[in-house]
Design a protein around this nucleic acid. Structure first.
Lengths: 202, 202
DNA sequence: TGCTTGGTTGAATGTTCAATCAACTCTGCT
DNA sequence: AGCAGAGTTGATTGAACATTCAACCAAGCA
């Protein structure tokens, strides 16, 4: 096993554990035992626990396209469908984990109250990439939306609804809370589409 | 100082600290030193740290009317205005804390990944009370909304948007993210009100 | 006066944690 | 073969943590 393998296995294991248990509840020993790496090796690659978190957040940031968007958008062409396909991906994660796993970035964002600027910037970058991807969908469908629609704000709003919906589904351990929230969002988007079509905003 | 005072000071201090630093990052020593209570006294009233959390969550649950709704709804009569007045209260908290303090329940909900059933039920009860209060506003304004509007789902949606908007404002340390999200929500609610007025749904 | 009960004190306990480090091995280069 | 440096090992350290407990106090009552 070479160096890149070790570093990678640490990051992958930490990614899993931070998602499962959160950052604060994951001990360095947890990472070591699950990844089968010894403490000296971990501290050879990372100055400290927080630097492992930075590495994980960089993986998320750099992998959003391949790891998140591509799998959910496979075979989906319509940009509005893409928005809801991504949300459906989060629904699947909730289902297969009995509503215990949410959005890893959202959990970290609320868990770490006084984040290091480096960590905070990375969490913000992850949010920005996510909502920008959604905003891009709305941009592509701009001709079907009321003129002057703020697609960037709409992207941020979809992120907001996803995070809030996941939070409730997880707290109640009930997917119904997620579904009802997405249904309301869908009603809103539908309203925008039909308002543009009927020309109410023209 | 009598017993009720001591117990109360512990709970009030813990409430502050859990809001400031979160549950996991608040040590029992933190609570003891800020509340000027000795460890033996705390453990006389509470079997352990988690029971302090339970006490805090009960305070939130039982105090939502007096502590949260009443102050924000003073002088506000219109039920739709009440919805946005409550959201404005959260905005004020963000402003006065430089976007560092969010919703205490939301933070706890995402921070504690494997909550004790007692804790989870209390967090859920807090969410239910909050969204029910908003649903009540929509119920009162039902005649101005499209017929068949699901006011309960709308209450959950407003909670969702508040939590997501607070999460982003806190992560970016920028109130603009909160404001834009609330603006989109307002656009949606406005659409519902005007759709009902124009009779598009009738 | 002495007993009981509810509350207080704070040093002590045992555990868990992140981080360290000196000794070691493996790999590639000369 | 001999060397250098990257990577590994795991016992160890010291701090922080939640919790305990025996001694103590004060109020009310017999």
């Amino acid at each position: 096993m070479n160096a890149a393998d070790t570093r990678n296995r640490i990051l992958m294991t930490a990614m899993e554990l931070f998602w499962e248990k959160g950052y604060l509840s994951t001990s360095v020993s947890d990472i070591l035992s699950r990844s089968q790496v010894h403490s000296g090796s971990l501290y050879h690659f990372f100055p400290g626990k927080q630097d492992v978190l930075v590495g994980v957040l960089e993986l998320y940031r750099d992998g959003i396209g391949e790891m998140l968007l591509a799998p959910n958008w496979e075979g989906v062409d319509d940009p509005i469908d893409k928005v809801f396909a991504l949300l459906a991906g989060y629904r699947t994660h909730l289902i297969v984990t009995d509503c215990t796993y949410g959005c890893p970035i959202g959990s970290l964002a609320l868990e770490i109250h006084e984040p290091d600027p480096v960590v905070r910037d990375l969490m913000a970058a992850n949010f920005t990439n996510w909502s920008a991807a959604i905003a891009g969908c709305f941009d592509t469908a701009a001709d079907r939306l009321p003129p002057g629609t703020d697609c960037k704000a709409l992207g941020e709003f979809v992120l907001t609804v996803m995070e809030g919906a996941v939070m409730q589904a997880r707290t109640y351990r009930d997917i119904g809370y997620f579904d009802r929230n997405i249904a309301v969002l869908r009603d809103y988007i539908t309203t925008l589409l039909s308002a543009a079509k009927s020309g109410s905003y023209a």
